[in-house]
Design a protein around this nucleic acid. Structure first.
Length: 426
RNA sequence: GGAAAGGUGGCUGAGUGGUUUAAAGCAACGGUCUUGAAAACCGUCGUAGGUUUACGCCUACCGUGAGUUCGAAUCUCACCCUUUCCGCCA
């Protein structure tokens, strides 16, 4: 969320930014609503001040047993209160409209973000590793997984429905190994604190990180409650400090968590229907930084590198892409995607998305800090990134490490997590 | 699910209709004193909104929301949360 002040004083900038982000939010009503609201507040506060004064006088008269003299003053208060009631209704209406506008304005892009309508304007920053050349006909991860008996999507459909899967035997084991491997690197080498948050959150939490009110459709909601399944650990992790004022010297706060993630994938029908790429439930190890505003863009570089290390250790070729204004998520001011090489698709596919949300989420979630003790509280900057999407890592390993005989070699770095296993085979 | 108690500032904790402008203490910050520190003393010490060139002034906030009243932390209703006990349960 942008601050009212900022929008009021930078109307043109915000309008331009909206355009660059393909947003359809209209700022036309903003100016009038803003003015109307402030006038009403001023009038109401003046009336209230008057009532307070009168009430005090009435109190004094009552004490002095001068009831008759209090009566006209009481009348006056009653009258003022009727007007106050009208004004409060008006204030509430305008504030609702204003906050609807403010809550649906996406974040402003950072100046370093390329302008563009969609992913074609994204900018490749760097590549790591060389895609392997195969001297046999390669299979995709679905075929490999099915043949090895470690992936069972048909039966998952019976148990739940489309876009769910069952991992079995070494498949399940590989998933668990990856989770531990990722968490170990982030906690032991990069200094993140491991967190195990709730997988179910309330709507205030989702509004804090920007999923609500605009993207309810992408989420799973539990019936007869205000509870929702998390679409990413970013949501509970970032909200840990909601409604708090932190001391500046504890920043940055680095958090990591493994959680399953639940997404309705509304509007993606027909997209990536095969395999594990796009599931309603998937595992992810998430990285979150609560940063000092002066440091946050440097912290984004660090966070991105922290995620990259996982791919490097697993020796999976990838590239880093800087998203353009039109391709970024709602809350982000700057985003790097990590894309892993998928032989079956002969292309790079997203496996991590690392974003700086600047003060956008912090303002919504009221996460603030003091530059020095006693200083005025300011919003922190919040960052998040996948480190990494476990399901996509799982399938990337199957595809990149497949052998002609249908077996899959276990990446060196992962073997300690699988009792030294070198190969997944029949 | 049943019963009971409770929710007040960063923390502890008073306050049951009218100088509460939320006491007091602790913590924090600034100062005096000191070679330095501690102690002592003095002062400052919440958040948000509105208004003002500015000093400042005004308004709201005692779990949340509604209500009673000229006036609510205090009374009424609903809800949320916490703790304890019982029941059920991994």
């Amino acid at each position: 969320m942008l601050s009212v002040d900022f929008v009021r004083n930078n109307l043109e900038t915000v309008k331009n930014a909206l355009g660059s982000r393909n947003s359809t939010v209209s700022l036309e009503p903003f100016e009038n609503l803003d003015k109307e609201r402030r006038q009403a507040i001023t009038e109401r506060d003046n009336l209230k001040a008057k009532c307070n004064r009168l009430s005090e006088e009435i109190g004094a008269l009552m004490k002095a047993k001068q009831r008759e003299e209090a009566a006209p003053k009481q009348q006056e208060v009653v009258l003022a209160k009727a007007r106050i009631k009208e004004l409060e209704q008006l204030i509430e209406e305008t504030e609702t409209k204003l906050s609807t506008i403010l809550l649906t304005i996406p974040n402003l892009p950072h100046q370093s973000v390329p302008l563009g309508a969609d992913e074609h304007a994204n900018k490749e920053i760097r590549r790591w590793g060389k895609p392997r050349e195969f001297d046999f006909e390669i299979k995709d991860h679905i075929d490999i997984g099915n043949k090895l008996g470690i992936l069972d999507q048909e039966r998952a459909t019976k148990i739940t429905g489309a876009r769910f899967s069952i991992l079995r035997g070494l498949g399940a084991r590989l998933e668990r190994a990856l989770i531990n491997f990722m968490l170990d690197i982030q906690t032991k080498e990069h200094g993140y604190q491991e967190v195990l948050p709730p997988f179910i959150v309330n709507s205030a939490t989702l509004q804090g990180t920007g999923q609500l009110p605009k993207f309810a459709e992408d989420l799973f909601k539990l019936e007869k409650s205000d509870y929702w399944l998390i679409p990413t650990a970013e949501v509970p992790l970032t909200n840990i400090y909601r409604d708090e004022i932190l001391e500046g010297d504890i920043l940055p706060i680095n958090l990591t968590a493994y959680t399953p993630c639940f997404r309705s994938e509304a509007g993606s029908y027909g997209k990536d229907v095969r395999g594990l790429i796009r599931q309603h439930q998937f595992d992810k190890v998430e990285l979150v930084k609560i940063s000092h505003p002066d440091q946050s863009y440097q912290d984004l570089e660090t966070l991105t590198q922290n995620a990259e290390v996982i791919l490097q250790r697993l020796e999976l070729p990838y590239r880093v892409v800087l998203l353009s204004t039109g391709d970024m998520g709602f809350s982000a001011s700057k985003t790097y995607d990590l894309e892993v090489w998928l032989p079956s698709q002969n292309t790079y596919r997203e496996i991590s998305s690392c974003s700086n949300c600047d003060a956008f989420q912090a303002r919504r979630a009221q996460i603030r800090f003091r530059r020095s003790p006693g200083a005025k509280p300011e919003p922190v900057h919040t960052l998040n990134g996948s480190g990494l999407a476990v399901g996509r890592t799982w399938l990337a390993i199957l595809e990149n490490y497949q052998n002609a005989d249908g077996s899959v070699t276990v990446p060196q770095a992962l073997r300690p997590y699988l009792d030294g296993l070198e190969k997944i085979q029949l």
